[in-house]
Nucleic acid binder design. Sequence first.
DNA 1: GCCCAGGTATAAA
DNA 2: TTTATACATGGG
Length: 278
Amino acid sequence: MDYKITETGVKVEGVTDLDLAQTLDCGQSFRWADTGDGFRGIAFNREVLMRLDGNTLYIDNTTAEDFEKIWMPYLDLELDYGAIRTEISRLHPVLAEAAQYAPGIRILRQEPWEALCTFIISQNNNIKRIKGIVARLCESFGEPVGSGFSFPEAERLAALEAEDLTPLRAGFRAKYIIDAARKISSGEVNLEMCRTADYDEARAELMKIKGVGKKVADCTLLFGLHRVEAFPVDVWMKRAMEKLFPDMTPESFGEYAGIAQQYIFHYSRMHPELFEDN
DNA sequence: GCCCAGGTATAAA
DNA sequence: TTTATACATGGG
């Protein structure tokens, strides 16, 4: 991947299959804000501003080393999404249409602990409130980074009690966050093992945590550990599968099922009329 | 007030 | 094994 150093960060030309709104504000990460002049966010203890002008990506407030080690992987720039879209579009005509509808979605490579924690918070919740709880979590227990705060380490939260999270207004999820933090920091649950373990084994490892079921485990595997075969099924996806893909199962979408899932998710949210009964 | 939100734990059938 | 209900909170 070719890039240039600028006065404020890096400039990457020839970036295809990327739409920052579709990728950063589609419910896989809850830490990016549309400033009107790009997306500002904090990940891996660094704050950056990302902006896309045609096929040129600008990342402000970063270095060559951070671009290569953090942001290039974060945006998954080395994976050929165009080729994957072509491949998975052959699986089903409706999937082909969905993939064409939002071709700029990519699967982020987020920090595994942040993905786990934010998707615990996401259960039976809406995106606006999830973002609020996550913001208060970082403000309360993270470290200052740029204009905001880092995502708090599991070790920091492991030392707390559920009542200490009252200011987050996370409701019944507070005790789940603490249980997750303790099992991650103690090593009882090993996130790195989940990168390479058999899929069922990785899922079972994550489900040792209270409040982590199939959906949260799959989202953690997909968005935090880049297990792109993971196909999270929520209420929307269940309806989408029944109405649009009655002849498919999550497994039948293959090794890039998670990418297919994101296309389908976005497409179905934008076309609620597909689910109206008649 | 009522319903729902990118679910899960728990109890009961 | 499958199906119902509570769970905290806030916006529509």
